[in-house]
């Protein structure tokens, strides 16, 4: 049992990791079909795991209702919505007023998806605009040197990316430098510089570290040095 819980997963991780790494360098059809086979296995496992997920969701909410934990009323809503959607999709009979077959366009399932689920999703996404305003207010308070720089950069970016930025830039006088004409305030140039120079440099620096870290963590997992993700307790 210890072998199955400890060594066997490490062997699988090692073999699969090395095999798929080598496959990356082999462009033949056989190597592609090996990868395709691996991906099919992933799909099969995910398919089975979905059942576990549904059971976990139901178990969590039923326990919450049984123990009357805070907000347990919402669990009734979750379970009712779950059952309704499941029936709408799987019911072996036509639901009056909707399309003849379930899961088709015009069916109750489709109707619920289109007119309840999608608007609710859009609502959540649109809330983001207000959250950005609230976060910006917190971030742009000039309490330190760094925060002041952040505030200045944000101001240039915000004004420079809207039409009024162009109007402001064009209204300022011009001067000559190395034979070129420049505006005293050129927000378009400044925003491009901010995005393409300091921002891109910082981003690439972060990404460089991330990619190297990913190589390192992949090596740790392939060679069984990092085993936390395996869990394994009874």
């Amino acid at each position: 049992m210890i072998f199955l819980k400890r060594q066997f997963p490490i062997i699988i991780a090692f073999v699969a990791g090395i095999m798929l790494w080598i496959r990356y360098y082999i462009p033949s059809e056989t190597s592609n079909s090996i990868e395709e086979g691996y991906l099919n296995w992933v799909r099969i496992i995910v398919g089975f795991a979905a059942i576990l997920g549904i059971l976990s969701l139901l178990q969590h909410h039923l326990i919450k209702i049984r123990l009357k934990r805070p907000g347990f009323a919402f669990s009734y809503v979750t379970i009712a919505a779950f059952i309704l959607m499941m029936l709408a999709g799987l019911a072996p009979f036509a639901i009056p007023g909707f399309a003849e077959k379930n899961m088709e366009s015009g069916s109750l399932f489709n109707w619920l998806y289109e007119f309840t689920f999608i608007p609710m999703q859009a609502t959540m996404f649109s809330v983001l605009a207000f959250f950005i305003a609230s976060a910006a207010f917190r971030a742009f308070r000039a309490r330190s040197m760094e925060a002041t720089l952040l505030l200045l950069a944000a101001l240039i970016m915000m004004v420079g990316r809207v039409p009024i930025g162009d109007l402001i830039s064009n209204a300022t006088p011009t001067f000559q430098l190395f034979g070129n004409d420049y505006h005293v305030i050129d927000l378009e140039e400044w925003t491009s510089w901010l995005l393409n120079v300091p921002n891109a440099a910082a981003k690439r620096g972060i990404l460089l570290g991330v990619y190297l870290s990913q190589i390192a963590i992949a090596i740790r997992i392939i060679f069984g040095i990092e085993r936390t993700y395996m869990g394994g307790g009874d």
């Binding site: 995910v46 795991a49 997920g53 993700y229 395996m230 869990g231 307790g233």
Partner: peptide
């Protein structure tokens, strides 16, 4: 993700056990 959930359960269980 249900796969992440299953693994997370195992990992937390192991953490408590240790």
């Amino acid at each position: 993700d249900p796969v992440v959930q299953t693994v997370a359960q195992e990992v937390v269980k192991e953490g408590y056990l240790n």
